[in-house]
Design a protein around this nucleic acid. Structure first.
Lengths: 173, 173
DNA sequence: TATTGTTATACTCTATAACTATA
DNA sequence: TATAGTTATAGAGTATAACAATA
């Protein structure tokens, strides 16, 4: 018998012969498909750094806000404190970032990139920017409109779910 | 001392005073922010059914393609076989769906909604459709363009990452 | 009394690998 | 020999809860 070979997982391609019903018309499903594709493409474009999109975002935030607190990082990324801790642990273990004492609060850390991290991030940022440019180029003028539409959608959906007459229900508390 | 109360996690709101650097300009980051917001809003709008967006998609696929194989479900959703198994386990355990013998292949299952599942899905689909309509309404004519842009982006990003001159590297194999 | 970060723990999601029973 | 599904396991990711040190 043949031992299972790894399948090319993750590609959320439309399967011929399968009826997607209302999914094809939903904004939310289109968003998921797009994010799935973009996620895989991000990995391809940044393979040599082995950094997930989320970790990339954390690196940029630390780089642009030297001394950033873990708590603020969590808030900016929509994470729990403990999530920011794990994230920071990984970044420090990989040599990207380091914790230094915060000058004004003995409880807190200030997060900083290491010199190595700065050097690596410069190249990684360039690769990500190039990746994004390639996508925008392929989309043409639709790309600009898309970006604007996404920014607005984030705003609208947030307004909708935090409207005062709506019950808040977080996923699986 | 006060025992920790659960924080309102998951909202990826821009934090005042934090510099997001290049993130604000990236298509990929805009996509992530939008999906984050939409995800939370989906949960709010469908709270009484306790079904995630992904499980909702599975239900629709089974409903529109009675007798669907687990393997095809996996393919359509970009999952591994074992992922479709877990998903199906959950759907059957909750009374949404059931496995029946496939008429033409003794190895395979045919997936079907239960009568209860059909009844529940009708209402859930209506709630999701209404949720989507509300978003589109709030976006105005930008919404139509956004939907089209997302469809195209999924296509473009897929083409980019599956181009013959690009190395395939799946995330963390 | 509240906040920052930590530890310990648990649950979800999703993958890999090896297995079975069919084909 | 290949395919459909299963089992067992492992690794992310992210949450909760209780805690220490500091504010």
């Amino acid at each position: 018998m043949k031992t299972d070979s790894p399948d090319p997982e993750g590609l959320m391609l439309p399967v011929p012969g399968v009826d997607y019903g209302p999914l094809d018309g939903l904004l939310g499903y289109a968003l998921r498909r797009a994010q799935n594709a973009l996620y895989l493409d991000f990995y391809r474009a940044t393979a040599e750094w082995d950094v997930s999109p989320q970790r990339f975002a954390a690196l940029v935030l630390i780089a642009r806000n030297p001394g950033l607190r873990q708590g603020l990082l969590a808030q900016a990324m929509g994470l729990h404190r403990s999530g920011a801790l794990r994230l920071t642990d990984w970044l420090t273990a990989q040599g990207w970032a380091e914790r230094r004492d915060a000058p004004d609060d003995a409880r807190a850390w200030g997060l900083h990139l290491t010199p190595t991290g700065k050097r690596r991030l410069a190249k990684l940022e360039a690769a990500v920017a190039e990746h994004d440019r390639a996508l925008l180029a392929a989309l043409g003028e639709q790309g600009i409109a898309l970006k604007a539409g996404l920014d607005r959608l984030a705003w609208v959906a947030t307004a909708q779910s935090t409207a005062p007459d709506n019950k808040h229900r977080r996923p699986k508390p």
